[in-house]
Design a protein around this nucleic acid. Structure first.
Lengths: 186, 186, 186, 186
DNA sequence: CATGAATGAGATTTCATTCAT
DNA sequence: GATGAATGAAATCTCATTCAT
């Protein structure tokens, strides 16, 4: 693993464990096995490091979701695969997901350009719009529907990470919950 | 307004605007119009100040919800009033609500006793359990149902704070959304 | 006990336990059961309190020694009773004695007027001088003899406070040690 | 001189002059010609700095005494050289010696492990024991004899630093005093 | 006399960042 | 690129002292 990746990995661990403020750059460098100054060769400031982590993960999640969303299927399956992809990525990348949540409520988030953020929402909004256009989904504001769906996923994630569930139990609760959601918005 | 309250008010403003770390205790004192050391007469540490704010607001919310939840009504109305009370408190106390969200993803949250936190969840869980017992609500784990309902409120809050809605639009979207939720869990 | 005495007593305890710097005036007031500001009615500053304690104890010791030194006796007995009085006072007032030692190595000591200090040494120096004049004590500088005798007492005090000795063992070691000292200077 | 040594030197000067509390770490850094934070790279806390100074000096003194104590000589000469070495080191390193005295009556001293302290006493105690075994020294508790001898040195040090003595006067008083001491304990 | 809330100067310590090697 | 010693601004917290009541 190259130094840049070592730093990113160490930063993720420490930020999640101790928060942004609770993590000194020197600790990150130490944990990454590089010198203090080396960190600043790759990231001009601590803030840049944090924002880079965030956009990296955001990108990674978007890619994963894109690759695991059924296309050329009926709208229900498309949305279902889309949502489940998000959920499973989060469950498989809990540290990254927690990091992103931390980031959202931090002041760093406000400094991101809205355009950047919109970019990641767009595909989901379009999917919902498509569902409405096809008459499958209730004709409500897409923003609202997106917010409800997204937070449904958060709620499910919260539940699933607070319990120890077997694989079958997991897929059972996921299936049930999605059907409930689908019933709600159609 | 006495000094303690001035400090609390200033702290809330600044924490929400700049985050916990981004807010120096000296700034808080200054904004509150008191001397640096005065802050530490009322709160032994910065952390104590932060935790006090959180538990204050948590208490305030719980009280508001308790006072605005219909009792002696059918279960649907009870739950409805309960949920709407939470939502409207959040909408009327946006700073306090943002503060609480910030707190949740901060390392301070981990230091709270679980017992304290459970105390606030308990009434909601009991309400859901009652709904299940009465056969009104689907027999799913209460934890799961609670998580879904709570996050539904978050989602709605998110939508409503991102738009400028008239009073009628507001109550319309709230009504609609609650009916969707109720349909989903029954 | 009046407030002034309460303060003095509390101050002694705390200073000996935690040092001058380690003891806040507010702690002293608290321990003494008086208000914060009351302390400053009796002592203009913390320093004045410390110096007052010191001179009080110094005075107390001097008085005790004066009252317990044999007069109208031969020089050996006079000096012996004088030395033993100092020693026994120290053993019976260990906190006060430790306080005085702490004071000696503190910067406060440098601020005392030399005249004040000399006053307490004078009687001892005169006694030694008398011994020399009578031909009983070696004709060495009185300063030197005084320093040796004083430190002999310190050494003995150190030994006796580090052991648990019975009354008979105590007086035995005291007798022996004085005879050794007397042998040394005559 | 490297920065660490500059800091140690400055700290010694200032601590002796103004006491531990009276000396701010920022003053030390300034006097040493280094930045504020640099001090804390070499010493994690102010306390660590103080304790390091103490153990450094203690070690230095022990080494000096070990190197200047006659071995393979009769017991009297061995003890004499041992005592004189201590005395002369103190006279040649008055600041360091005053620092050590300050340290002894400070609360920092209590935090040192007893084992550490015993280590430095051990050689002296053994020497005295040897003298007793050989029948040269009176069969009294070694602790007591050590305390008396040590304090004799303190007394002599006190006398010699309060006077301006020529070299010959110095060695004369030292010789005389040692003979008195030796007479006393044999 | 007594109180104790309020003060604010000052102390220790941290840490993001730089830069000479 | 890599290093890590050095920096110094800034943050939290303490505490002797004051003063209105």
């Amino acid at each position: 693993m190259n130094k840049r990746d070592s730093i990113i990995k160490a930063a993720l661990n420490l930020f999640v464990e101790n928060g942004f403020h609770g993590t000194a750059t020197s600790k990150i460098a130490q944990e990454a096995g590089v010198a203090n100054g080396t960190l600043f060769q790759y990231f001009k400031t601590k803030e840049e490091l944090i924002v880079t982590l965030y956009t990296n993960f955001k990108e990674e999640l978007a890619l994963y979701v894109a690759n695991n969303t059924a296309v050329d299927a009926n709208i229900k399956d498309t949305i279902k695969t889309n949502i489940l992809a998000s959920l499973y990525w989060a469950l498989d990348n809990r540290e990254k997901f927690r990091f992103m949540q931390q980031f959202h409520t931090s002041p760093y988030h406000g400094q991101l350009e809205l355009e950047t953020l919109r970019k990641y929402e767009e595909p989901h909004l379009q999917l919902i719009q498509q569902g409405i256009n096809e008459g499958a989904i209730k004709p409500l504001p897409v923003d609202l529907l997106y917010a409800l769906m997204l937070n449904q996923v958060f709620g499910l994630y919260q539940f699933m990470t607070s319990k120890e569930l077997s694989k079958t139990e997991q897929s059972e609760v996921v299936e049930t919950t999605f059907e409930m959601l689908w019933g709600m918005i159609t």
